[in-house]
Design a protein around this nucleic acid. Structure first.
Lengths: 198, 198
DNA sequence: GCAAGCTCTAAGCGCTTGCTCACCTTCGGG
DNA sequence: CCCGAAGGTGAGCAAGCGCTTAGAGCTTGC
């Protein structure tokens, strides 16, 4: 199954959250009103506050679930079988595909961090640190095995993640490329970045 | 000279614009109030409306000037002397350096497009199209000259620009790397992406 | 030496915001 | 058949929003 927001119950809370993701992605957190969210979910503005204490809690739930998913994708690739090159290919391919396919969610997850409360942001930043660690581990493995030539592992880790994340900003579902095609292109480009020359 | 916002006069209008850049970068366009902008500039809220018709006009001025600068950087590199590899190195190096050094401005320029009016956004999108064309030209030249191996020129152009632009999101002036160091790292990574293997 | 014009402020208007509250409905268990 | 809990609504509050207006102060041209 793996239905996008299946873990959110009851049904009304899920509908509100899906509506919030759409609204936040389209107009940004601060430009979205609680009336807009409730309206998209077919409910009155007051209904929102039965399931969520504040508008910020809604953003936090979205951000938390999204970052959990992103981290799982990268960790699965990092801990999987195969050479470092194969694992890096898989990591980039699946991470990019997620950012393209679910670009609505990803946009909220990646670009609305600043709207979180201090406490919630700290929690999310820790998840991002672990995503960074997963990619760095693959690069380090590849260098150790002599597969990769990477003079600056932390910097290259940052660049790889940055490249993938920015897909959420520009990807357009009506555009020319499918998520799979972008994933393939990006996996190829990233492998070239880390592979020994000549 | 090349003082950042030297083209904006009179002085009061410049001070308001600089204050707006800071505020928009920190909190986002929609979360920034006209009172906050005026306060940072040491003026009353009403003073803003002597120099700008609306808050959106302020954003448009910022976005326009910033995109002009970004386009100039890329066009200068594309039309400069040297091999395609040298020009691409220069383009990435200077474009990344600008996004790092002026990350406050770049953040507004790159991430607040959606807050512009339909008309203003159309104007800005055209400037971005020309930035894309400048990079694509370098890649095409390199392929024609046999310097580069790039199976998908439009896709790789997109990836290169995307990588550079995302610097504005993560770059931290208090961080470990200087703008020059990031520029050098990124120029190296991008050259690896386009250079023939083996 | 003073009218004209520009810059700026204090006050505030009309509206929207996030959120609350009194009340209504639905429904399973004794 | 009634009861209390849970999920929902319409109306509306206090605060904050973008922006306007009346008028004060300073500079300038003749």
């Amino acid at each position: 199954m793996d239905k996008p927001w299946g873990e959110v119950t009851p049904e009304a809370a899920r509908k509100l959250l899906v509506a919030a993701v759409e609204a936040f992605a389209e107009r940004g957190y601060h430009a979205t009103t609680t009336r807009d969210i409730a309206g998209r979910a077919g409910m009155s503005p007051a209904a929102l506050y039965i399931h969520y204490k504040t508008k910020e809690e809604l953003l936090h739930r979205i951000s938390r679930i999204g970052h959990d998913k992103a981290l799982k994708i990268l960790q699965a690739a990092a801990e999987g079988p195969g050479t470092a090159a194969e694992r890096l290919d898989g990591a980039v391919r699946s991470f990019v595909r997620w950012h393209a396919e679910r670009h609505t969610t990803a946009r909220v997850v990646q670009y609305e961090l600043d709207a979180l409360s201090e406490e919630h942001r700290t929690e999310i930043v820790e998840l991002r640190r672990r995503s960074d660690a997963a990619v760095r581990r693959i690069l380090n493995d590849g260098v150790k095995a002599g597969e990769f030539d990477v003079p600056d592992v932390p910097g290259t880790t940052l660049a790889v993640l940055s490249l993938c994340i920015d897909v959420a900003r520009w990807f357009n579902a009506q555009g020319r490329r499918t998520p799979d095609e972008v994933g393939e292109l990006y996996a190829d480009l990233v492998l070239r970045m880390v592979t020994a020359q000549k």
